[in-house]
Each structure stands twice: as C-alpha cells, then as structure tokens.
Design a protein around this nucleic acid. Structure first.
Length: 528
RNA sequence: GCGCUCGUAGCUCAAUUGGAUAGAGCAACGGACUUCGGAUCCGUAGGUUGUAGGUUCGACUCCUGUCGGGCGCACCA
C-alpha cells in the first residue's frame, strides 16, 4: 500500500521525499514534510510551498484529498482504493503482505556451545532471530538460518572431562578431585547416567575414554539444544560444525598472508586487526600450533562469504560486542566487504517472579534454563516478551505477569481480539467468503480508521525487518487489537444495516492479527 | 583506566530512524453490562526525555562534556 502511494506521489512531485504517518490520523493517512526541506532552496515559507504542491495533485482516484497543514502535506486515501486493497488482501489470505525481494541473506543466531542446555540469555537471541527469519521469508527475502556449532576447542574437551569425573564420582562411587574449571549443574550428572546406559559404565574407567565422552556428550547436548529450540518453534536450516571447517584453514590463512595481514612473533601467528580499529592484534595460531577461537571464526566467515550472500546477519549476546571489530577486520583481510556483515547484539535478561529475582536452577549450574521458563509460561509468552523490546536494551520481566489471563497479558489481549472476530462471524452465521467482495464504502470514520490500521501490516513488517526491530510488530499487534476492542464496544455488527461491510472489515483485522502473530511464531487462537 | 552500550510517567516499555501536542500497559482514582463473551471499553491523574551545552526551520533521536547502570578489555569459547 505504502509503495503504491509513494509511486503515485513521486509521479507528481518528481523528486525524493520522506513519507510518514501523521501524528494524528484526522490529518490524513500519510504525510510528507518535504516542504520544510525545500524551504531553504526555494527561499519561501514551508506553508506556501506545501500549498503550492498540494494544488499539483488534481483529482486522483487514489486520494480522497490532499491538504497542506502547517507545512506538512497530508494525503487521505480514497475508500475505493482501500477497499480494493482489502479485497486483494482477503483473497491472498495468509500470504497477505508477502512479496518478492532480490536480496539474499544468511542469518546466524543462537550458536550456543554444545556443552549444556540453552539458558534464558540464549532465548532472547533465539526468538529475535527466528522472528526475523520468519518475517524475512514472508517478505520474500532469500533468507537462510544457520547455527554455528563450536564443537572444537577446550570447551568440548572440558565437557568430556566433566562427564568422565561425574561418572566416576556418581556412578562408580570413586573419590575424584575436580579441577578448577569444569561444567557443573545436574545436567552433567544426568548425562553421565545416560552415558552409562548407552556406553556402559566401563566408559568411566579409563582416562583414554575422555575423548569418546567429549564427542558423545557434544552430540547429546546438541540434540537437547535442538529440542529446546523446537519447543519454542525454532528449526534451523543449516548447522555448521566448527571442527569440520579446519580443513579449510590453509586456504583462509593463505588469503590473509597474501594480503600481508598476518605476521609471526614469539612463535605465534598474529593478525593485524589493529589496522581496522581493533584494540590490539590478535593471536590466531598459538605457539604450540593450535588455532585459537578466532581462527575458527575466520574460516567460518570465509566459508560464509564464499557462499555469496548479499548480506550477513549475526545475532550475538551483548557480552561479545568486543569481538565485532576483529571479525570484521578479518573479513576485510580475506578480501570481502565487511560491511555486508551486520551484528545484532542481544542484551542481558533478568527475570523476576512475583517481584523477586527468579531463583536460579541448580540443575542448570547457576543459569536459568530456557526450558524451565517455557514450562512455566509457555512458548508464546516467552516469545512475546522478548520480541516486545528492542534487543539492545537490558530487560527485566516478571514471569507471573504472563500467567495472568487479562489485559496485563498482551498475548491474551491480542488473542482475544482474534477470537472475538470469529465469534462475531459465528453469531452472524457467515464466512469470510460471503463478504469478501462486498464494497467497503460509506463506512463511518472509526471503521475507516480500523480498516486502514489493518492494512498497514505489510509496511510494518517491512519496517520491522529492515530496521531489525521486531518489537515494531508486537507494538502493531497490540495497537490493532486495542482498536478492534474499542470498535467492538462502540459498534454493533450483527444485525446492523452494514453487517456485511463490517464483517469484511473485521475479517481484514483478523487476517492481519493472524498473519502478524504467525510471523512472530505464535498461532492465533480461534477460541479462548 | 580504555572501549562498546543503555538512561523516557512510580514500574515495564514505545515513539514512523531528524518531524506536527513524547505514547501504551501496569499500579492509583472515577465511570460503562436486560452484552455480537465486561477476558472488554471510556475517563482522571502522572514528563524540563539523567544533566549542561552545541548543530537547525525542527532534537528523545545527531555532536561534545558530565553523572549513573550494564557489558567487555584472553593465546576461554
């Protein structure tokens, strides 16, 4: 809708302009402040310019009126235009708002180490990533979701060792001395018991078996992570194993060398990341020949960029922000455009329950497990909270709020709006097909405004996606639900003179609610 | 100490990315049912956008200083 409006206006004005929504809908559906930016150039007052530009719009089928108010040019869309659009939307059903885009995007998120279950911090990045993915898909981007598995390096060895020691202590009943660093939490002990069942308790007898336990444990943990994700409706297309990439190290390393971006010092190999704003140069190969974590990420990003996407998005925990500079430097050194990589940081989350800090789970080893929170408030609520806030602010939420079934709980509120619409149709004994082609003309102002709000879904999605701010979708859904409830309270549908028209209007609202919810991973309720 | 980031109503968060009178929900108070399910709606109150400057037609948004919170500052991942 916005696109066609922009095109129509562009045809008249013949120049670039910003199209926005007026603060007050009574001014119009859209507005542009273009007269302000022209004021200097033309040496005239914005009000005058606005009025002159207005008169350039003769009578257009798209606009009911074009007015100049305080320097803004306001556009009011015609009923027929809105009706045509709504009819089209209702024919498209769940595909309303979908489009085609040329751009291909690789979206990487979660990528939690396969050494333990997902905790609540992972959940935020997970649902934001998944919703961006779903919205992007809907909008027609060629977007692919990917999970990078850190299955090489110390932490996997540490997992094996932790399992080994846990098995010796809890299964073989031996005394063990725990090292300073190991994975704690009851999930390790649970996992040791599973290891006993699958591999036999002999596995805990010889230290030689630690390597076997590492690999076995890592696979088990990955399964657990996948099932944690599936519980909130997240399924990845790609999994890329860090370990499997090391074959390509030589190739990546040679690229860096050729560009003279590495050097040897103290028996180690360094990368010149300071050249591109990093705080210091970084070691990529240690003096014993083992590559560092950064080496893995260099290969991984080399691998990503070889696949030739137009854009790359990584969602990382905010504690990794210091890492951005060196990865971007590496991408540049490999000969790619590092600006194609965009990193979204997901900030910390703290949970409350009844106003008190949420108790950490012993099972998790001082982390709050994502699965515990899902068990308590459900996937929909979990998703909704995290999607309602900008990712870059720290957030605090009380899970008790999401157990309430009233207007405190926004999902409930939105679902109720959707269910209400179904209820009205049921009461009227009609279906969407019955009213789809009824022309929406002669509606009162409230009805027209509601219709317009419902038709905004595609541009909200586009805006949310391109700014990577999914909270715009939840905000929109809350506002649309509120408009629906208000309308419902003030206007009787069933039995009214305009019954069919109003039913079509409600169908349109229901469609936008349903599609919007679907794209943030929540299924709209037909009945409460 | 350095770097990144955040600071908006009592609380949790928005604000069309520089636009018109900074908005929602909760909490508080007052209203609306012989109802298409009141699981809803309407109203009142609540703000010097941490703070001091600057940039311009116009600043919550950009710049500088400052105060406060968070996170980093590994050859761990």
């Amino acid at each position: 809708m916005k696109k066609s409006v922009i095109n129509a206006i562009h045809e008249i004005l013949q120049r670039e302009f910003v199209l926005e929504k007026p603060a007050n809908l009574s001014f119009g559906h859209y507005a542009t402040p273009i007269a302000f930016s022209l004021a200097k150039e033309l040496k005239k007052s914005p009000m005058l310019i606005a009025e002159e530009l207005c008169s350039a719009f003769g009578s257009q089928p798209m606009f009911k009126e074009v007015t100049a108010i305080k320097g803004y040019i306001n556009f009011k869309l015609s009923e027929t235009f809105l009706d045509t659009y709504a009819t089209w939307a209702l024919q498209n059903e769940e595909r309303f708002g979908s489009d085609r885009q040329e751009c291909s995007i690789l979206l990487e998120y979660v990528s939690a180490n396969p050494t333990g279950p997902l905790h609540i911090g992972h959940a935020r990045g997970a649902v934001i990533g998944d919703s961006l993915y779903k919205i992007g898909r809907h909008l027609g981007y060629n977007i692919v979701s990917e999970y990078y598995i850190n299955d090489a390096g110390n932490q996997v060895d540490l997992l094996g060792l932790s399992l080994f020691l846990a098995g010796r202590e809890h299964i073989l009943g031996l005394d063990v001395t725990w090292p300073e660093e190991f994975y704690r939490g009851e999930y390790i002990i649970d996992l040791a018991h599973i290891a006993k069942a699958e591999l036999g308790s002999v596995i805990f007898e010889k230290e030689d078996n630690i390597a076997t336990l590492s690999v076995w444990g890592k696979d088990k943990m990955l399964e657990l992570i996948k099932s944690n994700l599936a519980d909130v409706g997240i399924v990845f297309e790609n999994f890329v194993s860090e370990k499997s990439l090391y074959d390509q190290w030589d190739a990546s390393f040679q690229k860096l060398q050729r560009n003279n971006k590495t050097y040897q010092e103290g028996g180690k190999t360094w990368i010149r990341s300071t050249e591109l704003g990093d705080e210091k140069d970084r070691v990529v190969v240690r003096d014993d020949g083992r590559p560092t974590y950064l080496a893995g990420d260099i290969i991984y990003h080399d691998n990503k960029f070889q696949r030739g996407y137009d854009q790359y998005i990584n969602i990382w925990g905010a504690d990794h922000h210091g890492y951005i500079a060196r990865v971007k430097a590496a991408i540049n050194f490999l000969g790619y455009d590092e600006n194609k990589l965009e990193v979204i940081l997901a900030q910390m989350v703290s949970l409350l329950k009844g106003g008190e800090p949420y108790k950490m789970s012993k099972r998790a080893g001082n982390f709050i497990l994502m699965s515990d929170v899902v068990a308590e408030i459900g996937s929909d609520a979990l998703r909704f909270v995290f999607l309602s806030k900008k990712s870059d602010t720290q957030l605090e939420f009380d899970i008790d709020v999401f157990k309430q079934e009233d207007s405190n709980n926004p999902i409930f509120y939105i679902n109720y709006a959707h269910a209400r619409i179904n209820q009205v149709f049921a009461k009227a004994g009609k279906t969407i097909e019955d009213v789809r082609s009824i022309p929406l003309v002669g509606l009162n102002e409230e009805a027209q405004n509601l219709l317009f709000s419902a038709l905004l879904l595609p541009e909200v999605l586009e805006d949310a996606f391109s700014s990577r701010q999914v909270q715009k979708v939840t905000e929109y859904l809350k506002a649309l639900a509120a408009s629906l409830h208000k309308f419902y309270n003030e206007n009787r549908v069933v039995g009214s003179m305009d019954e069919d028209k109003l039913l079509k209007l409600l169908a349109m609202v229901g469609l936008s609610l349903r599609v919007g919810l679907k794209l943030i991973g929540i299924r709209a309720k037909e009945k409460m």
